[in-house]
Every structure is written in structure tokens, then in C-alpha cells.
């Protein structure tokens, strides 16, 4: 008996083998040579847009990205570079700069500030090892426990589950689809950290924002073997009567901090 691999490859070659063109409307005994039914199209047809009309990081693509993210019910702020640390802290700690808008009906939208009357200690915020230390420091200054997760010393699933939030950077963002891509670089971390905690704060630099999907794919291609997570809004389902509900297994709240300027 041949092994499955050999047999399947042989079956495919036989199927593609040609010379066995079926003549429709004839029984097997009166086959006549027919003509190919579908002409084989030329190699890749690529007449679609491989780039948008707006440059990466332009005001137009940023506006488009924000529009799409808001449509997915993500929380978006646009701030200058020196405001990132404060914006990250503000996303996580409502009392720091007032109460951010919350997703209607969202549960546990943010870290409960200390002394909120609940018999629960403030929970930790997870960060990847390469996150900008200034952002982490701002959180620590606000009294939040910051836990660094690394490939070498990963937090357990239970630890991630008990954490309140995660803060990451991003690799690239796609304006037309409202998509942020993480590729596991040190400022983005392991895939699990942006998945298990219920709140994800993601910092995207303006120059990382492209207009179209092909622009992003071509940026990612040289390091295609990195684990990628494409994120378009908070987790969602439309499985019940096609009615979209934001927030299922992945983070139910997504904050995007878009950093303007060079």
C-alpha cells in the first residue's frame, strides 16, 4: 500500500493529467475530442489597486482609519507624540482625566480605580517587554500594577485572565478597513497578551497607517513568518439573527491611541 502523500500527489497529477476531455452530451462509447471548456487565464491578474491615493500617515488616511474604528465601536483618540503616556493612562484609568466614553452595555470597560467601593483590588495591566518605558512609567505613577510578559518568562493563562488590560504598540494599520496588525515584535508581545485581558490599548503611530490592504500585506511580507494578528475593532459576533454584538471572547473593549506627527 502506498502512503497517503504519494497517493494524493499521484491522484492530483492524474486529475490534471489532461487528455481526458469529457464530451458533454455523449456517452462514454462515443467520445469525441472536445475543445477546452474554460480557457486557462494568464498568470496572476493584478489590476486591482496596490496602493491608495493617499500617502501613509496623511491626514486623509488618519481620518479614514478613525472613521472605520469608530464604526467598529473602538475608542479612538488622536494625540501628539508627547501625549501618548497620558493618553494610555487615561484610557485605562477613568479618574485620571475624567471618564472616557464606554461601549453601551460593555462590562468591565476599564480598570476599576482604587477605592471605588468594590471589594476588589485594582488589577494588573500587562505590557510586552519592548513597550516604550515612558508609557509604562505613567501607568505605574497612577498606581497601576504593571506586569511585563516575555517569551522567556510568559505569564500563565490564569495570570493573563486576572489582568485588567494590556497595552501594546502595532506594526501597521489599514485605514480603509480599520485594521491594526500586530506581528509579535517586542513592543507588541506574545499573541496571548493582546487576547486574554478584557481591555486592549493599542498605540499606532501615524506613519504606520496605510490606506489599503495591499500596502499592509507588502509591508508584512518580508517577515511573513512572524505570528500576525489582524485586529479590526473589538471581538464581535453576528451569529444570532445576523445582529452584530461587540465583545465576545477577545477583548471587549479596544482603545486605539493614534499618535500624530512625525
Amino acid at each position: 500500500m502506498t502512503d497517503a502523500r504519494t497517493e494524493i500527489l499521484a491522484r492530483i497529477r492524474a486529475a490534471l493529467g489532461g487528455g481526458d476531455q469529457r464530451v458533454i452530451g455523449s456517452s462514454s462509447d462515443d467520445r469525441q475530442p472536445g475543445l477546452p471548456i474554460t480557457p486557462q487565464p494568464a498568470d496572476h491578474v493584478r489590476e486591482y489597486r496596490t496602493a491608495g491615493e493617499h500617502a501613509p500617515g496623511s491626514a486623509e488616511v488618519l481620518e479614514l482609519l478613525v472613521d472605520r474604528l469608530v464604526d467598529y465601536r473602538a475608542h479612538v483618540v488622536q494625540i501628539p507624540a508627547d501625549g501618548v503616556a497620558a493618553a494610555v493612562a487615561a484610557a485605562l484609568i477613568p479618574t485620571a482625566t475624567g471618564t472616557p466614553e464606554t461601549v453601551p452595555g460593555a462590562v468591565n470597560g476599564a480598570v476599576e480605580p482604587p477605592g471605588d467601593g468594590l471589594a476588589r483590588a485594582p488589577r494588573a495591566v500587562v505590557v510586552p517587554p519592548g513597550l516604550d518605558p515612558a508609557w509604562t512609567a505613567a501607568l505605574a505613577d497612577a498606581g497601576v500594577e504593571v506586569r511585563t510578559d516575555t517569551r522567556e518568562a510568559p505569564l500563565s493563562n490564569a495570570e493573563l485572565d486576572s489582568a485588567a488590560a494590556v497595552v501594546t504598540a502595532a506594526r501597521v494599520a489599514i485605514a480603509e478597513t480599520g485594521t491594526i496588525v500586530l506581528d509579535g515584535a517586542p513592543d507588541q508581545g506574545r499573541r496571548a497578551i493582546s487576547l486574554v485581558p478584557d481591555v486592549h490599548v493599542c498605540v499606532v503611530r501615524a506613519d504606520q497607517v496605510v490606506q489599503t490592504v495591499p500596502e499592509a500585506v507588502r509591508l508584512l511580507a518580508p517577515e511573513a513568518d512572524r505570528p500576525q494578528t489582524w485586529i479590526s475593532g473589538p471581538s464581535a459576533t453576528s451569529d444570532i439573527e445576523l445582529d452584530r454584538v461587540e465583545g465576545v471572547h477577545g477583548p471587549r473593549t479596544l482603545h486605539v491611541v493614534v499618535v500624530q506627527g512625525p
Binding site: V23, I24, G25, S26, Q32, G34, L35, I37
Partner: peptide, 10 residues
């Protein structure tokens, strides 16, 4: 045309 073609009636 397709039917005639495939019936060998080029």
C-alpha cells in the same frame, strides 16, 4: 456554440 463545440461540431 459551446454545446455544438463540445459535441464535436466545430
Amino acid at each position: 456554440a459551446m454545446v455544438l463545440d463540445r459535441a464535436g461540431l466545430g
